[in-house]
Design a protein around this nucleic acid. Structure first.
Lengths: 255, 255
DNA sequence: TAGACTTCGTGTACACCATACACAGTTTTA
DNA sequence: TAAAACTGTGTATGGTGTACACGAAGTCTA
């Protein structure tokens, strides 16, 4: 390789080696007193307790009774640690028991499962994702959703598109739920009162007359009335997507 | 008020005052040499040039020729500054000219406009959003989308749900595009080659036989083949949503 | 007009943060 | 036995947001 040419670019394969624990490890020196899993697990613990902002290399090291710099023998950077935490926090999907048999039921269950995970471990949504999914657990989830559509006449192209669409929807909806939960925690205003508060803000803003369509929504008191549960809201949007899938399936069956 | 009761909670109304420039300003002391708009604009400039990570209070102050701490006379915290930047970076929607007349065309245009903005100013997606939209420009966008459905028999409840759904979709899709752009920038691997690279990673992973449905997708070479443009991908998912909206409209017309 | 009151910008200081680097100790291979 | 490779550690660098105290400057009230 010509010198100076390879301007030190980042290689996604390194991350994959970390995720799959396939990093070649020389046999020479002393074996580490820790394992990659222990380091990542410590990070996950802290994130579960204090959120992602609480995860610092110092705290991870402290929890393991080790100096900060020794962590870098296991993980190239904090960014990689976060990617590894995301993978570890994604559970192996185990839905054999009550797993429905029709594609619609399965995709619904999949979306719900994803939302449940992301709302519980909301710090996962705070991790800046810099690559497409590459870890084994994440692949397993993809496989699950794709498998849900196995009995349909959809093309593989279709399935992939739908997978992305539904995952995106679940992430998005989770993001909103989480942001609402945090607002509640931070303000001390209850979940129910927040609709009231937002309603008043909108009233103040629409009083200028600049937002006619928004004004009509506000006047309909959607915000002020006690609203549907987050679960219902989620299913509402999901049904839109699944109707679209159904239509596509019908089309593929015909053609 | 009983002492010790109000345990110093965060008040969203303060943020709204900032966003609407309605913060009461005493008339006593000297007038500031800067304005809130100048501070926020400086932040936006830096974000445009270096991304959100480049925005620090020190750099903003430096750009304005002022000490760091003086910024806190205009903005309570960096978090608020970011919220203000989000609002300022959202342009006043001006789509009078080629604005379609049917709801479907309008919602499509809306979604495209949103995607364009978020991909251009990708740092907006990096801002941790902690409240529902409260700024004038954000309200204007909401109004636009709601107004797009004015001629339909949808209830105000429906419209709000659809607004959230479509905005969420646009944000989500933008997030993916941006993350791809960043991967390209960081690895030096071209946009086209990335499919190739990811394909090989998937091949390696599916070789274990653990992911049957994923294997079928990989074997179909969806990733390896040069793929649809991001624009086409976007419209693909959007059509799903809009079909759902059409179905709901038909239903409301009947009932 | 004098003094009280506010608000300004500034400098200093603190408690963090990620990580580059050199080093000494330990383990394995040639 | 010596070389090589890998380990954990301490130190150091250059960042981060913001609390606090200060003097200067402007505006209101008596």
């Amino acid at each position: 390789m010509p010198p100076g040419e390879a301007s030190e670019k980042w290689d996604p394969a390194h991350l994959m080696d970390l995720l799959w624990r396939t990093r070649p490890r020389g046999t020479r020196g002393p074996r580490g007193s820790l394992s990659l899993d222990e380091v990542v697990a410590a990070g996950v613990e802290i994130a579960d307790e204090e959120g992602l902002a609480g995860v610092s290399m110092r705290k991870v090291a402290g929890r393991l009774g080790v100096t900060v710099m020794s962590l870098y023998r296991y993980v190239p950077s904090k960014e990689d640690l976060l990617d590894l935490m995301f993978e570890m926090a994604t559970p192996e999907p185990t839905m054999a028991a009550d797993w429905p048999t029709d594609w619609r039921g399965r995709l619904t269950a999949y979306a719900h499962e994803m939302r449940k995970l992301l709302v519980e471990r909301s710090w996962m949504l705070d991790i800046p994702i810099s690559t497409p999914p590459m870890g084994p657990h994440n692949f397993a989830w993809m496989d699950l959703a794709l498998g849900a559509m196995a009995d349909t006449p959809l093309t593989e192209d279709d399935k992939l598109g739908i997978l992305i669409l539904i995952s995106g929807y679940a992430m998005n909806e989770s993001r909103q739920i989480v942001s609402m939960n945090r607002a509640v925690a931070r303000t001390g205003v209850s979940y129910e009162e927040w609709g009231e508060v937002y309603h008043r803000m909108l009233e103040r803003a629409t009083a200028t007359g600049r937002f006619p369509a928004l004004t009509r929504v506000v006047e309909s008191e959607v915000f002020a009335r006690s609203h549907a549960t987050a679960e219902e809201d989620f299913d509402y949007g999901l049904s839109f997507l699944l109707d679209g899938v159904a239509a596509l399936i019908a089309q593929r069956e015909k053609g």
